[in-house]
Write a protein that binds this DNA or RNA. Structure first.
Lengths: 130, 130
DNA sequence: TGTATAGTTCGTTATATGGCGAAGTATAAA
DNA sequence: TTTATACTTCGCCATATAACGAACTATACA
């Protein structure tokens, strides 16, 4: 399973680089809020091209901050769970605490509420039109 | 004094970007270890050009992670102290915890021990030769 | 089958970043 | 007041990164 070697500076800076981007932080905070989101919902939230969002998700995954699971045509992402190492869990907690009152993140939460109410089929079609 | 407004995502990503570089993390960890260092000692530790180190220090200072105070010709840097906001203090603590056992950081500590024993005058002359 | 859809990967472009040396600034020493 | 020293700022270059659209992959549905 997970390899429990010591954190090295490379891993740590990788985590920090992954989180050093506003859009990726928004993704992480959306997952903190909703637990799990499919890619098209994240695309809708950020208003970026699918390929761009996919790359952001890849970077977060490389840093072990998030995980994905595929269900049919949809891919769902969630925060790294119990398997995540201590540093990852702690930095996610730090982010959460630091941005709890952030105005932009609050707006994202509201927007996410609307997005989750929408029909997923229609949502993905909307994405297609970009 | 310090303005106590809410953290915004901009500030937070700024902190994360500042720490998303190995050399800057090494600087921070050196300051964790020794409390205070002058620029020429940091230059010696990293083995980079003075101008490069100066820029790294500037970036860390912009993110409110470190502070400087000038004494004569020498400029000393230390970690942001009591004036630092909660997020900064916490992320510094996280870094410290995450890298406590890192091999490279341990090497830096040893090297720093030697650097601090050296005559500061001679150290800065050595720097000049680069 | 074949066609549509949800994501990903690839190639390109514009901008950001890390590195350096040269020039500039401020303090100390001669 | 001149010279040296300890940094910093500036201008440059090479590489990294974020964004996009086009092409590709995998699954579902007709």
């Amino acid at each position: 399973m997970a390899k429990y070697k010591n954190n090295c500076i490379k891993d740590i800076t990788n985590i920090l680089k992954a989180l050093g981007d506003e859009n990726r932080v928004r993704i992480v905070m959306a997952l903190v809020d909703k637990g799990q989101l499919c890619v098209c919902q994240i695309i809708e939230l950020l208003g970026l091209a699918p390929s761009t969002v996919s790359k952001h998700l890849y970077i977060l995954r490389q840093a072990n901050l998030i995980e994905s699971n595929k269900k049919g045509r949809w891919v769902y992402y969630n925060l790294a769970g119990g398997g995540a190492n201590k540093s990852v869990r702690k930095v996610l907690h730090w982010l959460q605490e630091s941005l709890a009152k952030d105005a932009g993140i609050r707006e994202d939460k509201k927007l996410l509420g609307k997005i989750l109410k929408e029909d997923p089929e229609r949502l993905c079609l909307k994405m297609k039109k970009r």
